[in-house]
Every structure is written in structure tokens, then in C-alpha cells.
Design a binder for these strands. Sequence first.
DNA 1: TTTAAAGGTATAGTTTACTTTACATATAGT
DNA 2: ACTATATGTAAAGTAAACTATACCTTTAAA
Lengths: 71, 71
Amino acid sequence: MGEQSGELTNRISVLRAEYKMTQQALAEKAGVTRQTIISIEKGKYTPSLTLGFEIANAFGVDINEVFQYKK
Amino acid sequence: MGEQSGELTNRISVLRAEYKMTQQALAEKAGVTRQTIISIEKGKYTPSLTLGFEIANAFGVDINEVFQYKK
DNA sequence: TTTAAAGGTATAGTTTACTTTACATATAGT
DNA sequence: ACTATATGTAAAGTAAACTATACCTTTAAA
């Protein structure tokens, strides 16, 4: 298969700045390593849905405020 | 690592019934195989965030109406 | 009663998310 | 000048998502 589909963007760096949260702190709150946060923040790969929710929870915002998907 | 984290549930079968969509049809709309839909629908594994959005788009609803995450 | 459509299970193989480790740079504080 | 903190890059290994194939059961329609 391989729809290649749409594009996923994120506002993690903006939210981190807004909530004054370091990559390390976010990683700990989300239960992943700092490398994982870096890679997702930079769009290197797509997180799992649960990690998406964990990151949103870390900021206390809806998942749609962190990630945007457009086909 | 391994937070083991929270639990992910989904309302895919309910939405499929509501919108009268077969697993095959949903799979095609989401750009994955029927096996993938079956596995996610039954909670066998967690979809990627993009697939989560694709499935929500297939129904035309918000992602939070399809997937619920509780720590 | 045969046929087709829909859902279900299993398993091997590929791709990609995620970890771990290590090292490198820029900035701020002492 | 040294030290600590924050961000960045790279690469090898593990874990999990996703594909492909095959076969089985149920339900409904011809």
C-alpha cells in the first residue's frame, strides 16, 4: 500500500516556549526520551497516537492544539 | 524507558455502524489495509497519529470522537 | 443451496517509531 | 576560565506498527 497521505505539523516548540518547558521536562512528562521529543518536534517522524495525547496532556491542551493534519 | 502510560480506547465500530461503513471501505479511505483497521478497532495496537487523523477524517469527525486516552 | 459480502484469526516479513549512547555547540552563571 | 544547562546530530539496536497472504465462519441474498 502507501497512500503517502497528508502532512503533519506540530506546535511543540511554540508550546514549550509558552509554558517554559525544556525538551527534557517535556520528555519526562510524556514518558519518552529527549531524543524522541527532538525528532517529533522537528518533524523527523510521526508519533504514535498515545504519545500525541501524552504530549498534549503535558501542556494541558487538546491534541488539535499541538498537532495539525492536512491532506 | 517505558511509562506503560494510559489506556487508549476507540469508537470505530460504533462510528462504522453509524455511518454504515465496512472495515474494507474505512481501510481504503484511510489508506491502510483491512488488517490494520481490524487490529486498531480491536485495540490490538496503537495507530500512528496520522492514521488516527485519517480515520477521523474518513468519518468527518474530530479525532477526539474516535479515540479517547485516559492515564 | 449455492454464492458473495463482511467480519475474524494467524503468521511471517517490512518499515518505522523509539531507545540508548555518545559527542558537539551555544549560552548563562560563578 | 570553568561549569552547568539547553539544544542539536548521529548511529546502532529494539520494539511495535503496518503489509501481505491465507484461510475460516457467519449472514443474507439469488
